[in-house]
Amino acid sequence: MLSWLRKLVFSIILVLVVVGGSRSAVAESWPQRTVRIVVPFSAGSAIDVAARIIGDGLTRRWGQSVVIENKPGGETIIGTSAFVSARDQHALLYTTFGTLSVLPLTVDSLPFNPQTDLVPLVPTVSVVVAVSVTNSLGVSTLSDLEALIRSRPGEFAWASSPTLPRYVFTMFLKQRGLEMSYVGYRDASQPQADLGEGRIHAFVAAIPTSTPAVAAGKARFVATTEPQRTTILPEVPSAAEAGYDELSFVGGAGMFVGNDMPASIRERVIADVNAVLSDAVISGKLKAAGQQVIGGGPEVLRRLVEQQAARVVEISKSIDLKSIR
């Protein structure tokens, strides 16, 4: 009896060793071909820039080409749907937290389930969003801006990046009883020119989007939407610091995979993406692009998405999100 039991235990251990070894071998041999990073935003966007910087680092680490596939449209729905449908184990999805936190609240029927079809791996960066104003206004703080808008209701125009930047500024105006006209754009480069020329008066978007007008001396940053002052713009206060908590949010992005990706490969991707993010050259390039490195694992990414989702729910109590998509 004892001999039989020992043989059984030995067999179980042997199976576990073989299985564990095979999983390790799978991870070590991956990737076996080009890896696609699907980005549901247009080329040149803040998310696209970060994906390319990280992708270059992964190419060197993996010894395989990493290509960026831009599939913009539908507030990330088009690209995310294509990624989920492909079920490609040599594909990663690089998108904002909003794909999981905003879409379920603004779209009645999604072609994918953000909770089950997307597996979070690594929170990569926070895309720092700033409120910039044209110099023709003669204001240098959010309180100055509020006072000017209040004194001349309806005379000024503003624009923003989609979703959260637009939501929070809309809420700011509503909660403080201010009137401004919103201007929508199809071409992301146009609001930069209009801000510099004073055709729009305030712009809420990722830092690099407003930088050309600021660098030319035609506009200035008055606040960021980060919870605390950021080292990317150390001279500019956060909105919360200036007394405007309603303008605060973290515009983060992360790496996701499909739910059929083997656990061993997930672990490899997590380790390698974090290694790339910790590289001083990579983090320096991201900072120059107006993005702060976060890093970490799936639990950190889940927590950040949940925090943003809670923030979006809070915003939805003040404004109708579906009416301003």
Rank of each mutant, 00 (worst) to 15 (best):
I77L: 00
P104W: 15
V139D: 03
S136N: 14
E146W: 01
L93D: 00
V122Q: 05
V84M: 04
V84G: 04
H90R: 07
T99C: 02
G98Q: 15
V131E: 10
E75K: 01
D88Y: 15
G79R: 00
T95V: 15
D117S: 08
L118C: 06
N135F: 06
F112S: 09
T96L: 12
T99R: 05
V122A: 09
I149N: 08
F83R: 12
G79H: 01
L103M: 03
S136L: 14
P111D: 06
V122W: 08
G79D: 05
E75H: 06
F83E: 03
A91W: 08
I78R: 00
N135Y: 00
L100S: 15
L93H: 05
G79I: 01
V84L: 10
I77Q: 05
L110H: 06
L137I: 10
I149Y: 11
L142W: 01
T99E: 01
L118T: 05
L110M: 06
V139N: 01
P123Q: 06
P153T: 07
T134V: 02
P111E: 12
T106M: 05
R152G: 03
R87V: 12
S132I: 13
L103S: 03
V107G: 08
N113Y: 11
A147F: 02
G74E: 07
S101V: 10
R150G: 01
V119G: 03
G73A: 10
R87Q: 13
T134N: 15
L145W: 04
G98T: 15
L110C: 02
R150S: 11
T80P: 03
E75N: 14
P153Y: 12
L121T: 12
G79P: 02
S126R: 09
L148E: 13
V133A: 04
